[in-house]
C-alpha cells in the first residue's frame, strides 16, 4: 500500500516543495512508495481522500490559512511541519517585530484590501506530528521522514548543532579562526553544513538546535564586532519568535 501524501503551501516560497523535485534519482523509487493525492505544484488533481502524510509548507498568516490547517489536521494521519516557516515562522515572521499596520503600509498601497494576521508556526493552531527543519529541509531528511512513517518509527533527524556536521566535514572554522558571524553553534543540523563548506557563514536557516544557548552566541557575535542591531537581526532572520531566540531577537 502506497502512502497517500498531500503537499500544501501556506505563506512561504515553495522552496521546500522544490527540494522534493531535486531528489531526481530517488524520485522513481519514491513514487513506488507514495501516492501524490494532492500537490498543486505538480498536478491539477483536487484533494479528495484523507491522507497518510500531509506536508505543510509555510507559516499561517491569513484567516483562510487558519481554517485550512485545521481541515488538513482533521484529514491527515501524520501532519509534517515542512520546513522552517511551518515550524518557526521563518523569514515571514520577521514582520512580527513591527506592527501589522506598519508591515502592511510598507508593502501595499491599499491596505484595506489586505486580510492578513501575524505569521505563526502551524503548531500555533494544530498539533503537528513531525517537524522537518530547514529552509528548505535537506532532501535526505525528507526521505527519512517518509521512510520513518512507512516503518512506523520516529524519524532520525538531528537536533544538535551545525558545528557537529561541520567538524565531521573537516571544515575550516569560520567563527573561531576567522571571527566571522557564523550561527552554527546554535543552529539545528541536517543540512550537512552546506554553507560553511562553501566558505559562507551559517545563517541559521534550520532554526535553533535543542537547548540552543542563544545568550552565549549573542555575546560571541558582539565580541567579534557585530553591533547589537546586527546581533538582533541574526536571531530574527529565521526564528526570532521562538522561545530560544525571542530574547536575543527583541
Amino acid at each position: 500500500m502506497k502512502l497517500r501524501c498531500g503537499f500544501f503551501k501556506f505563506t512561504g516560497c515553495s522552496g521546500c516543495q522544490m527540494e522534493i523535485l531535486r531528489l531526481e534519482d530517488e524520485l522513481p523509487p519514491l513514487l513506488e512508495m507514495i501516492e501524490i493525492a494532492y500537490w498543486p505544484m505538480v498536478t491539477s488533481k483536487r484533494w479528495e481522500e484523507n491522507l497518510d502524510i500531509a506536508f505543510v509548507e509555510g507559516s499561517v498568516s491569513t484567516p483562510r490559512e487558519v481554517k485550512e490547517i485545521k481541515e488538513i489536521r482533521k484529514r491527515s494521519r501524520h501532519l509534517v511541519a515542512f520546513g522552517e516557516c511551518a515550524i518557526t515562522g521563518c523569514i515571514p515572521s520577521i514582520r512580527n517585530f513591527m506592527t501589522q499596520s506598519e508591515a502592511e503600509e510598507t508593502v501595499y498601497e491599499h491596505t484595506d484590501w489586505i486580510e492578513s494576521i501575524k505569521p505563526s508556526e502551524i503548531s500555533e493552531y494544530v498539533r503537528t506530528d513531525i517537524s522537518l527543519p530547514g529552509c528548505p529541509p535537506h532532501r535526505n531528511t525528507i526521505l527519512e521522514v517518509i521512510k520513518a512513517v512507512a516503518l512506523q518509527r520516529k524519524p532520525h533527524l538531528k537536533h544538535h548543532s551545525v558545528c557537529v556536521e561541520c567538524k565531521l566535514k573537516d571544515n575550516n572554522c569560520l567563527l573561531t579562526t576567522e571571527k566571522r558571524p557564523c550561527m552554527g553553534p546554535v543552529t539545528n543540523a541536517g543540512c550537512g553544513a552546506i554553507c560553511p563548506s562553501l566558505n559562507r557563514e551559517c545563517e541559521g536557516c534550520y532554526g535553533p538546535m535543542s537547548a540552543a544557548n542563544a545568550s552565549s552566541q549573542s555575546q560571541i557575535l558582539a565580541e567579534i564586532g557585530l553591533s547589537m542591531d546586527d546581533v538582533k537581526r541574526k536571531f530574527r532572520k529565521y526564528a526570532g519568535t521562538t522561545d530560544e531566540y525571542r530574547k536575543e531577537a527583541a
Partner: peptide, 28 residues
C-alpha cells in the same frame, strides 16, 4: 562565556571516541 553545547570540543578532541549508531534504510 557559558558553554554552547555545540560539541566542537569533543569533535576536535583526538581522544574523544563516543559514537552514535543508526540504521539507514533504502527506499525499498
Amino acid at each position: 562565556f557559558a558553554c554552547l553545547s555545540c560539541g566542537n570540543c569533543s569533535l576536535v578532541c583526538p581522544t574523544c571516541y563516543c559514537f552514535e549508531v543508526a540504521d539507514i534504510p533504502e527506499l525499498s
